[in-house]
Amino acid sequence: MGLAVSELELPPEDSLGGLIPRFDLTERLVHWLTALFMFTCIATALPLYIPPFAQLIGRRELLVVIHVYSGILLVVPTLAGVASKRWGSQLRDDLKKINRWDGEDSMWFKSWGRDPLLLPGKFNAGQKANSAFIAGAILVMLMTGVVMHWFGPFPVSWRTGATFIHDLLAYMIVVVIVGHIGYAIRYPATIRAIVSGKVSRRWASEHAPAWVGELDRSDQN
């Protein structure tokens, strides 16, 4: 456990060579393209679903086209990033980290991250849960959306079931995204990380200590 050592080696100021890379260009592009398509889906969903907005905006046919195709595009950035041999290696590594949960993660949920004894890795359990939920939600919205829009080949009851799931999950997605943005605002370093790709070593040692330890060990190797 090289963690305590790395903490002692902390430079006193962030500015003293204290920035470490957190997200590479591929990851940031994947994040922001996904965000763009998600935002487009939500913005077009409002006038499709809520009658007063529908009346205000009209243009239903156009909105449907934009909504459907940005929904399909939602899966593209992640798949393209993962599939890219050359540009996707860090994305693939981080997805492995997000996928794997250990005892640390179940402890995180007991205190919602407040327990001072927690030593999260690059991603804490909340971040892992958020990523997994959004990934699952995008797939379910895609499935149900396809049944709603191209209903021809499916049994007619599926269209009602798909509509119900699509509506219900839409609310959950909005709640989770509002939470995601709320946490980002509360921890501005995370916004800098997903914009510039870098975080200060000090921030990382506080919020992702096991990750810093891991980085230092791989530097030594």
Binding site: A132, V140, W158, F164
Partner: peptide, 27 residues
Amino acid sequence: MTLTASWKRPVGRRIVLGMVTLGFAGI
């Protein structure tokens, strides 16, 4: 880093697959 990592499970994948399964059931 092995202190608390007594177990490791692919929970992320399970969440995604679980949601997709529920999505099919919902349809």
